[in-house]
Amino acid sequence: MAAAAAAGAGPEMVRGQVFDVGPRYTNLSYIGEGAYGMVCSAYDNVNKVRVAIKKISPFEHQTYCQRTLREIKILLRFRHENIIGINDIIRAPTIEQMKDVYIVQDLMETDLYKLLKTQHLSNDHICYFLYQILRGLKYIHSANVLHRDLKPSNLLLNTTCDLKICDFGLARVADPDHDHTGFLTEYVATRWYRAPEIMLNSKGYTKSIDIWSVGCILAEMLSNRPIFPGKHYLDQLNHILGILGSPSQEDLNCIINLKARNYLLSLPHKNKVPWNRLFPNADSKALDLLDKMLTFNPHKRIEVEQALAHPYLEQYYDPSDEPIAEAPFKFDMELDDLPKEKLKELIFEETARFQPGYRS
């Protein structure tokens, strides 16, 4: 834990890192770190609560700039109880001085990944967590956004079992017609939660990839272990087919990539493993919904509104309290091709509203 900075004593240090967030945020305490930044909790002297502050230093890398800009653009436009918001952003007053960006968010005690390492969940908890994931996802999908990296560590939890989806750095506007060349190379989302079509096709992607990830998360809540822990690309596919069985001819016809289709045709026939054999203690309604989410063919996979209306979630289902976005989200430009200098300018502009004396 960093010592509390005395008023006016300059930035606090946390594990050798400068955290320049005073005077409003003090009493910093280390939480963890990701690929390009550290997260601390801090005391907000204005709202009198502890908050989470993520320090991001992305400006050396085009990919990190892209992810940072995506996350900020999306989260500043989203407003939903099951999606983490941005409360404040701290950065230098000029673009030349801006080396880091500090993002202030609600402090959540833990995440689903940490929880599943230590606790076996009751059916009631599984049901409530799944409902909140789908409630947040309904809003995301209504904005025409794909999260693309749903996994237990991106689901934040607090002691009252509130759940918030975080990390929109890989999110995209849904565009089933656009052929994202190089899709697989830039697709760094965790393999275990990846839909089979991501490994088999490169053309376009749809909201059904997020539903697949939610199915993987439900299976993990039922058993405290990942359902498809593939060691590499082909191993991942083999794990999936080992449980779902061989795809039907109709399902194979959806695979545009001939090499991928021929690979699947070359494999020995596998039978589907019954879900109640894998999860003998699970609620039968939970397994019915799991089956509809972990469907090989993305066109037959359940959609988020149908999933919310499934009998497993009937005690929570309330369409009048499951809000959607006001308007579909649009990125003005494809960020993939922009140089990091341009992305830095866009991050600077996007964060201006939090600067003292800002006038829109």
Rank of each mutant, 00 (worst) to 15 (best):
Cys65Lys: 09
Gly34Arg: 12
Ala9Met: 04
Asp167Val: 15
Ile84Lys: 10
Leu237Cys: 10
Arg353Lys: 13
Asn123Cys: 03
Phe78Ile: 15
Asp124Lys: 04
Ser122Met: 07
Gly204Val: 15
Asp20Trp: 04
Lys55Leu: 07
Trp275Ile: 11
His299Ala: 06
Leu163Thr: 02
Met38Val: 15
Ser223Thr: 14
Ile347Ser: 14
Met13Asp: 04
Asp332Phe: 08
Leu313Asp: 11
Leu69His: 00
Glu322Thr: 00
Gly37Pro: 11
Val14Lys: 04
Leu265Gln: 14
Ser208Met: 05
Pro323Gly: 07
Pro311Leu: 13
Pro328Phe: 10
Ala189Pro: 08
Thr295Phe: 02
Asp175Thr: 09
Asp167Cys: 10
Ala174Pro: 07
Glu349Ala: 06
Ile83Gln: 00
Asp318Leu: 04
Arg194Lys: 13
Val39His: 00
Leu241Val: 09
Tyr187Leu: 05
Gly242Tyr: 01
Glu345Leu: 11
Asn82Tyr: 15
Asn224Ser: 02
Cys254Leu: 09
Asp210Thr: 08
Asp149Ser: 02
Ala174Trp: 03
Ile74Gln: 03
Asn253His: 12
Pro280Thr: 14
Tyr43Arg: 09
Ile302Pro: 06
Pro58Ala: 15
Met38Leu: 15
Val145Asp: 03
Ser360Ile: 13
Phe331Asp: 06
Leu290Pro: 08
Gly169Ile: 03
Asp124Gly: 12
Asp251Glu: 13
Ala189Gln: 12
Arg77Val: 00
Arg172His: 02
Ala3Thr: 13
Leu170Tyr: 02
Gly32Leu: 00
Ala325His: 00
His178Thr: 08
Arg50Thr: 12
Phe168Ser: 07
Met13Ser: 04
Ile103Lys: 14
Trp275Asn: 05
Asn47Ile: 15
His147Met: 02
Ala52Ile: 06
Tyr193Glu: 10
Leu218His: 10
His80Asn: 13
Ser153Val: 06
Met98Phe: 07
Pro356Met: 06
Leu237Gly: 11
Ser41Ala: 12
Leu75Ala: 02
Lys272Glu: 00
Ala307His: 00
Asn27Met: 03
Cys166Gln: 02
Phe19Gly: 02
Phe78Glu: 02
Leu244Trp: 08
Ala4Pro: 04
Arg301Asn: 02
Leu28Lys: 04
Ile324Thr: 00
Cys40Asn: 10
Trp275Glu: 04
Arg148Val: 09
Thr190Val: 09
Asp20Gly: 00
Gly32Phe: 02
Arg15Leu: 11
Val49Pro: 13
Met98Lys: 14
Tyr36Ala: 14
Leu338Glu: 06
His147Cys: 11
Leu157Ile: 06
Lys138Glu: 11
Ser142Gln: 10
Ala7Ile: 01
Ala3Ser: 13
Val18Gln: 04
Asp336Phe: 06
Thr160Trp: 04
Arg301Tyr: 02
Asn253Lys: 12
Ile89Ala: 03
Ser153Trp: 06
Ala195Arg: 09
Thr159Asn: 13
Gly136Lys: 05
Val101Cys: 07
Gln355Tyr: 09
